[in-house]
Write a protein that binds this DNA or RNA. Structure first.
Lengths: 225, 225
DNA sequence: GCAAAAGTGTTAAGGATACACCCATGA
DNA sequence: TCATGGGTGTATCCTTAACACTTTTGC
């Protein structure tokens, strides 16, 4: 019945959409256990961390050079035997980011940092495969019931960009007329006076997400397709 | 940057509906800190606990004599300063139970165990008021999007019992024709050949929840009213 | 004028909401 | 027969789903 000596890690599952593919940020471990295996970025909680979320922010930056990110707590994993070093409780965080804005950098803790397609992952350390699977489910849910998708896009985006994010996360294609109709009538988009200038075809109108409009809506819209 | 010495507690927020009122199970603390204050049942993780959920189960039984309960992880609280004894991470669990089946018993850890209406709580230890507030929101959500309500009812119940649970959790009244129509057509209820024999008026038909039917439904029903 | 992606409307079906009275029972 | 809660149906509105062609642009 003695109170157990426990160590706490905070690990982050970061998603981004790249060229229509939903990807996860992983690091290659430099040290035992699971040396040379891929794992989620993260590490032990320290005395300097004011909160669990602050610890996640710090470690994500140190290990992958990623900052300024949407973060939310995902789940806490604490079964006996999940870490060969002893009892380790892991508080997992979910991060959403815009891959285009990132410049990855391997840190001293990791010999490599890379994006991996969520449907084609390498072997993973600890129970990280289960954490990713759980977070992937959460993301699918969130994108349909919250404005989470906008965290996976730059500030200005086309309706096609937005639809690509939904299709990548949900893993299926969506009717573009119904998609546009629903979003345009939802009241969360602000139409800009700009267009994207991509190539030798019709330029697309740019939009941005209006947090203010969203907050003022009488009922939360649902983005189910 | 030193890895911090952390202690982990597991606390449980247990809900039940009693006479149309949504209530929370609290214990009166026997020791410092917050001696004589009300708090959620819970305590430190021990070496015997195989998992966080097992720890919650054990502590709930030891402190309140409650067993055989629906449990799910709620959230992990870890800000600096939330416990005067030092860094304490609390993994909070949500429990749903049938108040009629319970026999509460004060344990040696607590000088009292009691149900408190969620809308009329006493002063609470630590950040437990925030935990309850968060769990209350989660419960409101769960009852509309999962069959969680059946964990707050005995195996056999009337449609009125079921509606009472929804009204207690959501905090508003619901049109009974629409409520019955939706549940009867949802496919999750099994009609029994029994009626409740309550008093000098028409007895009500009894139903039970059919887990099997629920699992076989092509789409998850939604219990929004 | 061609290639490429942007942008647009209608119809049909199903689900949600609002609303008020009769029924069955025991005392 | 009365008091009490149990039990029922319909009309309207709104949301969803299915579906294909025209427009704009750069080359």
């Amino acid at each position: 019945m003695a109170t157990e000596i426990v160590r706490v890690t905070v690990d982050t599952l970061a998603f981004a959409v790249h060229q229509g593919s939903l990807e996860v940020l992983l690091i290659k471990r430099k040290h035992e256990p699971f040396k040379a295996c891929w794992s989620l970025p993260g590490g032990f909680l320290t005395q300097e961390d004011q909160s669990l979320e602050a610890a996640a922010t710090r470690q994500l930056y140190e290990e992958t050079n990623v900052s300024n990110v949407y973060l939310e707590q995902l789940y806490t994993f604490g079964d006996i035997g999940r870490d060969p070093r002893g009892r380790v409780i892991t508080v997992a965080y979910l991060a959403l980011l815009r891959q285009e804005e990132l410049e990855l950098k391997a840190s001293s803790e990791a010999s490599g940092v890379a994006w991996w397609p969520v449907n084609d992952l390498p072997n993973l350390a600890f129970d990280h495969a289960a954490i990713i699977s759980y977070g992937y489910q959460r993301l699918k849910y969130k994108i349909e019931y919250t404005p989470a998708a906008f965290n996976l896009l730059c500030d200005k985006f086309t309706l096609r960009d937005l639809q690509t994010v939904y299709e990548a996360v949900l893993g299926r294609s969506i009717d573009n007329r119904n998609f546009r109709k629903k979003f345009l009538s939802s009241g969360v988009l602000k139409e800009l006076d700009e267009t994207s200038q991509e190539a030798s075809f019709r330029p697309a109108r740019l939009y941005c997400f209006s947090e203010d409009n969203f907050e003022r809506l009488p009922d939360r819209p649902v983005f189910v397709f």
